[in-house]
Amino acid sequence: MNQIKYVVAGAMALLLAMVIGGYFADPAPKATDKESAAAGGTLRIGVDGTEPAFYKVDGVAKGFDYEMALGVAEGLGSKPEFVVMDFSDLFTALQAGEIDMIGAQVTETAERKKDFDFTAPYFVTYLSFLTPENSTIKKRDDINGKNIAVVEGTIHERYLTEQYENVNVVKAPDEDSAVKAIETGKADAFFYDAPYTAPIISRAPIPLKEAIVYPADDAPIGFVIKKGDERKKAMDDVLEQMILNGDWLKIKKEYFKEYPLSDVFKDKGV
């Protein structure tokens, strides 16, 4: 009889321990936790909805940055969620925790790195000169001594003064104003990011061509994340694997087939 009491008492004690242990155990990670996002949670990617980074054709999402971001999410075991907003709002949204990562052809600069972290590069900035179709500008040496339009406040103004001699910088408030400067004879060419010139050419009031395109190897493009995000190394590893296994080159050829390969990726064995 006493043995039965001891058995019952022991069982009750074990049950009580299990209940208490379960009650005070750490809860399962939420989908918004960093640990969860790296192992099955949602990765919210901020994009600005601009071709060729992220756009839609008949309701189907496409884009270079879109496909690279999909690869990162898959490598992390996360569910990708794309959030479209104006480019100027992306960094504020990242700081506020509304998104986890920016994928919008963002060039890594010393100024931006003060407030944000960048993943390993998945592209570099490609620069181009738009000129009238009958322009004598054929190569980069032809730029010296010319009047070149830029959108004021962009990185292009600095590049012009650093890389070219005797260039007269014509500042414009926006792309269409820069084209207007060419139309009125105030500028010989428009210096801009190559991936975004197609819509400018299509809506220009005068025939334009992309006379020169070249990679700026010292201007890498990476995904932007919050300072100290613990997923950075995992993201870098995924990007490296995409480059080494050929996925990156396949995506690059789909969207930027005509662009010369940057030394940044030649050095990685592409």
Rank of each mutant, 00 (worst) to 15 (best):
K138T: 10
F123L: 02
S177G: 10
T42Y: 10
A11V: 15
V238L: 13
A110Y: 12
G145S: 02
A93K: 09
E240I: 01
Y255F: 07
P27W: 03
K250V: 03
G228E: 11
D218Q: 14
S36G: 00
F64L: 05
K186A: 15
D188M: 06
E165W: 00
P215S: 11
D58E: 13
V19D: 05
G222R: 02
P173T: 02
Y255E: 03
F24S: 15
D247N: 11
M101Q: 08
D141H: 07
D33T: 12
Y126G: 03
V151R: 12
E230S: 15
A120E: 11
A198F: 01
Y23G: 11
E183I: 13
V151E: 13
A69R: 05
D100R: 05
D89I: 01
V151G: 06
L208Y: 02
M12L: 15
F118W: 01
L90R: 05
N2K: 08
K257C: 00
D33K: 07
Y255K: 06
I200P: 03
H156P: 10
S36D: 00
P173G: 03
V124Y: 09
A120G: 07
F54V: 07
A219R: 14
P27A: 14
Y214M: 10
K113H: 06
G10V: 07
A17R: 07
K266G: 01
D58Y: 10
V167T: 01
A172R: 05
K146I: 09
L14T: 14
M101D: 09
K114N: 14
T197R: 02
T42H: 12
V270G: 01
G77Q: 03
L76D: 09
M85K: 13
M12P: 00
D229I: 02
A11E: 03
D89A: 10
G145E: 05
Q105S: 08
A93D: 13
Y159N: 09
A28C: 10
R112V: 02
A172W: 07
M101Y: 11
E74D: 12
K30L: 13
A187H: 05
A204P: 05
S88M: 09
F116C: 06
I45W: 11
V224R: 05
I251Q: 03
G153W: 12
L43H: 12
S128R: 08
L130E: 14
K30T: 15
E111T: 14
Y255V: 10
P29E: 11
K56R: 15
L130M: 14
I4P: 01
E111S: 10
F118V: 05
V167F: 00
Y126I: 11
K227S: 15
I221P: 01
N147Q: 13
G269F: 03
A194R: 03
I200S: 03
I102K: 06
A234E: 13
S202H: 02
A17P: 07
P121H: 08
G63K: 06
